[in-house]
Amino acid sequence: MKKATTLRSRHPLPVLATAVALVFLYFPILVLVLNSFNASRYGASWEGWSMRWYELLFSARSRDIWEALQRSLVIGVAASAVSMVLGTMAAWALNRYRTRLQKAHFGLIYLPIVAPDILMGISLAIFFVTLDVERNIGAITVAHITFCISYVALAVLARLQDFDGSVVDAARDLGANRWQTIVRVVVPLLAPGILAGGLLAFTLSIDDFVITFFVKGVGSDTLPLKIYSMTKHTKEMPVINALSTLLLTFTFAVVWWVQRLSRARAVA
């Protein structure tokens, strides 16, 4: 209702600013997609349509790109699974108890979100080296879990705000033991928050460059690290364009699918 009153005389500035922002956000991505079909190696001029970069991407010469992607997926799944468990427990404690312990707990959850990546990266790197821990895929996963827990905790905490605590008491009164209450009542009710948090954790893990860059040892490149080393070698630039275009298409497809799914559910 409050929106109907503002229909008269709209200033063009907000529309203009939004248009500028969107063009700004999409322009480089658009050029990148176009360049992935550009026969030219340097993308400076248009030399006709070509699929050669895609062919190169799927040839044996690009095998390490796919190995890096696989490594990224394994780390992403492991990190989001562990952080979903730890983050959900954290959110539960933060929501249920109002003690001094929880104040400190909240600080521990909140600080990793505001700390710049590079600080977390260098401190974990020095920590691992000091303890003489082998900096392999396991160390990278530990690092990823560390920055993912907080995001899951906050997502579940948001869901807990309108969680009715009395259902837990009801379940217990009806004879469910603690484990049954958790598995059959609490987790299903919190599932949307846990999944949203897990999805965010997975995205952050797949996207992370800086922390992995500092933590990793020799030879365990994740996809972002592989892309980084490719950007340093001009010769391989167009292959990145092709890979990015495929990843973009995939992202758009997933987003579109999720949108459709949630719309279908809203109708049903």
Partner: peptide
């Protein structure tokens, strides 16, 4: 409370707070 707090708090103490202080 301790059982639900310990996993996340312990993890972040070891892999976030301690390394930060180490720096």
């Amino acid at each position: 409370e301790w059982w639900t707090t310990l996993p996340s708090a312990g993890w972040l103490l070891v892999f976030f707070a301690v390394p930060t202080l180490l720096i």
